[in-house]
Amino acid sequence: MRPFKYTRATDVAAAAKTVSTNREAAFLAGGTNLLDLMKEGVAKPSELVDISGLAFSKIRSSGNVISIGSTAKNSDTANHALIRRNFPMLSQAILAGASAQIRNMATNGGNLMQRTRCTYFYDVNMPCNKREPGSGCGAMEGINKGHAIFGWSDKCIATNPSDMSVALMALDAVVKVSGADKKQRSIAFADFHRLPGDTPEKDNTLEPGEMITSIDIPMSSAGMAANSYYLKVRDRASYAFALVSVAAAFEIKGGSVAKARVALGSVSHKPWRCDQAEKLLTGKSLKDLNDASLRAAVDAELMDAKPLEHNGYKVELARRAMVLAFKRALKSEVVA
């Protein structure tokens, strides 16, 4: 690890300015991913600006949104009464990630900033366009069991590892950010993470120096609280990244699906919103929800999947996992 300057930020604008002027500077919050990457030699900041002391750790109700502070800890967020009551699927997703210790350290903003777990990205001896643009993709012709089946490019086939983000995608969250010139803006969750395209080094649409201040979830998504589920499939029972994960949430009104929100994790460079499946499920009468109709919605979504050499299983796994997540979300509402 190269030497770096460590400063504790007391002021948002000053912190943002430091990071926007020094391209080698980085924000430090929980540090659970950044320090890991620094020890691997993947991240080499010359300066760390510790933003964990900034006043973004509140979780509160604000008008028609629940606002989740960016420096609030993952564990505090998952256990917060407002989140449990209104967005239990978000609690589940957060709790599906990492370990209790890491959730006690990791922040919400940091969770969204997590970088891929692609082993070629992590090993500095391997080629990786994300880590070192132009060096090639080690995974493309390599061991790509854990890689993307949607939205990959010839430059990068990595997946986003965040569980929390998959739930936030399905909950129509909005990411609030603050920039160097104190400029604030809102980014729809679907626009926050990006596909790799020709610039896989960029995971998201933040500008240099921009800092996440909060993640806002509309209260309109709370209508799905009773019928939502986050399912994570992995190679061991806990403390492992997903092979495939599913966030499934439904609002049931008058015996039919008024709203359906579905997102997949670990299948793409970003959390994968399943518009096709949502469309086919919305408006369906509960009486018509059965294995066949759920399966049809899923199949429509997975038609465009493009598996690689070692991850063909993900298509079938996603198919089954989605149907299972739908059933768990819908519970007794549906006769399977």
């Binding site: 460590y6 430090l28 540090g31 659970t32 320090l35 890991d36 760390l48 510790d50 964990s52 564990s75 209790a100 210790q101 890491i102 006690n104 350290m105």
Partner: peptide, 15 residues
């Protein structure tokens, strides 16, 4: 740390 379990390997002393 302050009563909660954390990982000391991913915590900078500076923090």
């Amino acid at each position: 740390m302050d009563g909660r379990r954390v990982l000391s390997c991913l915590t900078l002393t500076a923090q």
